[in-house]
Design a protein around this nucleic acid. Sequence first.
DNA 1: CATGAATGAGTATTCATTCAT
DNA 2: TATGAATGAATACTCATTCAT
Lengths: 200, 200, 200, 200
Amino acid sequence: MAGREQEILDAARKLFRQKGYYATTMQDIAEAVGLQKASLYHYIRSKEALLLQVAGETMRLFHAELDRIEAAGGSYAEQLAAAIRAHVRVVAEHQETLTVLFRESHALPPEHAEKVRGETRRYTRRLTDLIARGVAAGEFRPVDPGAACLAILGACNWMYRWYSAEGRLSPQEIADQFVQVILHGLVLPRGGPAGTPAGV
Amino acid sequence: MAGREQEILDAARKLFRQKGYYATTMQDIAEAVGLQKASLYHYIRSKEALLLQVAGETMRLFHAELDRIEAAGGSYAEQLAAAIRAHVRVVAEHQETLTVLFRESHALPPEHAEKVRGETRRYTRRLTDLIARGVAAGEFRPVDPGAACLAILGACNWMYRWYSAEGRLSPQEIADQFVQVILHGLVLPRGGPAGTPAGV
Amino acid sequence: MAGREQEILDAARKLFRQKGYYATTMQDIAEAVGLQKASLYHYIRSKEALLLQVAGETMRLFHAELDRIEAAGGSYAEQLAAAIRAHVRVVAEHQETLTVLFRESHALPPEHAEKVRGETRRYTRRLTDLIARGVAAGEFRPVDPGAACLAILGACNWMYRWYSAEGRLSPQEIADQFVQVILHGLVLPRGGPAGTPAGV
Amino acid sequence: MAGREQEILDAARKLFRQKGYYATTMQDIAEAVGLQKASLYHYIRSKEALLLQVAGETMRLFHAELDRIEAAGGSYAEQLAAAIRAHVRVVAEHQETLTVLFRESHALPPEHAEKVRGETRRYTRRLTDLIARGVAAGEFRPVDPGAACLAILGACNWMYRWYSAEGRLSPQEIADQFVQVILHGLVLPRGGPAGTPAGV
DNA sequence: CATGAATGAGTATTCATTCAT
DNA sequence: TATGAATGAATACTCATTCAT
């Protein structure tokens, strides 16, 4: 059944995150699912294949969120805010997977590593395009869309290292803060009668 | 001599970054410095000690920059901008070390890992405090300083994964963009006299 | 059914020859007959038993041929020639089995290996006796019958390594050549009125 | 030193012969030379490399003997007799190596197996040519040189299975018998008071 | 009859580290 | 200082075989 395979994948993901890919032995995984080492090989081809599956799981999610958001439309600021919120949520919900992806994907054989990197690049490009369109539309400042995108992704992805479900802020709250910082910046527009920006 | 020790450290850092800590063998390091495996042990205690040294190198730098900036004074926005610029510069200049730090420090034994994490936390706190003071002084929006700080650190640290000296943007330019996004946000304040409050 | 068992035996023989006994897995055999690994065990006791069966198949054939030839009678030269022809034919027809027998029978457990060797020895003895009787009768040169027998068996058995159905010579032709060499030698009797021997 | 490497090679050869290549473990070899398993790898690259070395050792010897014999000249019958004697001697002296070569060389990776087979073919061709020249010169019967050569090689090589230093016949005696059978055949030329062939 | 699941025992190989020279 | 030799411990993976269904 797929049940056992899923159990193995879950155990592997958890262990890879806790101890790292190399430090996790097939023995560890076997014990975690209550099987003998050899029995694992009925369900998976190799340890590496396990890593590949774990690492490959997530990019889909990000793309799906972006699809949804673009379909929903709205101003660029609204779309970008939604994208940030979605990204934060995915990172919080799949922290384990993403930790493995970010920390261990270099252990994949070149071809697979390349595939994972390709997915990542594609996602980056989509987000960059969104920003570029916002800039072109005069809705965003004339920033460099590539750099801005990487700043945003960095802020969100970095969560994999510090987020905790027991932490002070909920994913929702984190997302609110990130949106505010990224969309409006930290600095209060100085005085003047001239308007402060509209809160998105 | 310290010369040899430094050579070994350099080789280790480079290899740890290229192939990862586990995938790098003492043999690799020995070949890189033109010694035999066994000879390395005249200079270093163990592979782990090597990792510890590499990983421990950098936090000092960040603190030093922050010292300098705080000593120089200026508005909170100026200080924060300077901190971002400094951070970006350090990441660009020590990408190798930071890659090892970010990716491999979990391979350290608990006590050492804790020490490294402690340094990191201390740096985060200093930056958070700076933001908190800016907020208290009414210079920054009333954001959550902790979240804002982590967003900034994420944006900057994430560079370890994508920055390339041959890339399109120089560290200087990257810093400019980051400062702009983080201090002023992406969204152009909508004109008009009618100021909307800094809601959100 | 015996059908399935035979199929398995055939597949095993073929694979043992192609890849060797150790390199052939039960999986390989199962795939070759379109069953699952576990299902093989309804027909056979073990992989070793399979090898034993394959290895044991052939000696019967050699003995049967010798029975037939001795029953038919004739001069010793005629009988020996017939034995060589028969042996060559059997090797050509059962090359697969004999390859396994010659190359892999040492993988059998001592007792079975001994049994196979016993059969081989018995065949060798019968052929040696035939030669010895020919020598005693003054029909053959006063050679050492044991050595002569092993020379003959070597020449014939070695075919397992080089014979090919697509080769230049048919088994019949090979047998003709072997008979000629073994019965009359390579060297042409020098001159003299004395005739060349009758071609057997 | 080469000493240890040679010891390992000797142990491997002996064990490969006794138990077969697959049934011999690196542990066995290590114990035989009084080292730990891991230590073997200071001297050899892999188990397979060990087999290759053992298997590759012998063909050189056969060629060297043939060189010597052809240089010495003499009638074709004399040369062939010398070749047979030499071959018998080499087999007796290197039975261990040849057993491994004949029985286990199919365990080599294709490219190396091919190389070994190439050497074998070259030796066969040289011997075939010698016979062919003898036939052309009218010194040998008009046999098929290829078949005759394979008969001879079979007779000699087969010794790897039955020869024993403690056996009834010395290599010298075996060679005498083989030469007699192959050069003059088993059958006594019938009739006439006239000459028996020259005993070579 | 057939098989999916499970396993125990085994196997080559790697690697950081030690130590006598 | 430098190293060749040696090793203990670990590790992923294989495979013949068993058994409940």
